[in-house]
Amino acid sequence: MPESLALLLSVAVFPGGVFALGLGLALKGVDRRLAARLQRRVGPPLMQPFFDLVKLTRKRTMIPDVACRAVFLGAPLAGVVAMLLAAALLPVPGLYEPSPALGDLLVLFYLLAVPAVVLMLAGSASGSPFGAIGFSREMMLMLAYEIPIVLVIVAVGLKTGIGRGEGMTLSLTEIVRYQRAHGAFLLDPAMWPALLAFLAFFPANLGIVPFDIAEAETEVLEGPLLEYSGPALGLFKMMSAAKAVVVLGLGICLFFPSGPDGLPGLAVHALKMLALMAVGVSVLRVSAGRMRIDQAFGFFLKWPLALAVAGVAAAVLA
């Protein structure tokens, strides 16, 4: 198979594309059901996110008169493409290693910022004042959580690099290989500060309670998403589903890529995502209330930042 075709398949089918979307929507379904059960509700069917998406594709997209049409429609599309690309950049431990031609951890890091940027663009392009507030909130939150996540990536890169007797590595493939040979970072106490910082980062990146500040329904009516409907809203749903797969997958690659080879490895990978989703998303979001943006900003510049700095120090020294 020529390499260009393999690249295309990795972005469009597996592990990006169809696979990432399907997995993301399935995870979302489990999350909604689990959260409902934790709140003593019955909850929707597990397939509900798929039904929602199908319903949205059959509706009309309303575009506000004051909206900037190109950006309004282009933003969600860019978000989905970025996330599918990012999913193809992530190794599936034991089954798939991304081609170096696609990029390394740095590229992935920038792609991870795209959904937030896209939401900001969408919010300001929609011409709604709530979108504008969502814009400023999303930006503040992003500024707050980006620094810790960079440091977490640096900590893991340094740890791997030092372990292999060279400088920092930015190749996720190498990081996964190293851990599969020498034991997962999850079991190494020196990496725990970085792990904790990551655990604080991903709810903010996924935009769930207590960090669903930019899209808070009871405050700014879902902010940037307020004016969206139909297929364009469906694209945002696809983006957030794929983003869940990317962010959870990144966490697994950075800290716990152990498992069997081949297809069983894929099953174990998906199970790990499910576990992380259940504990890190469902349980978290039913057990807390929303923070105000200033509180969240202060929180990220305190705990996760300190933990991430400690993580880098521990990775170098230990």
């Binding site: 669903d212 009871t218 209330g289 929303r290």
Partner: peptide, 12 residues
């Protein structure tokens, strides 16, 4: 509780 995004307490 619902307004601060704490829906579990709202349900309770």
């Amino acid at each position: 509780a619902h307004l601060v995004g704490f829906d579990t307490l709202f349900m309770q």
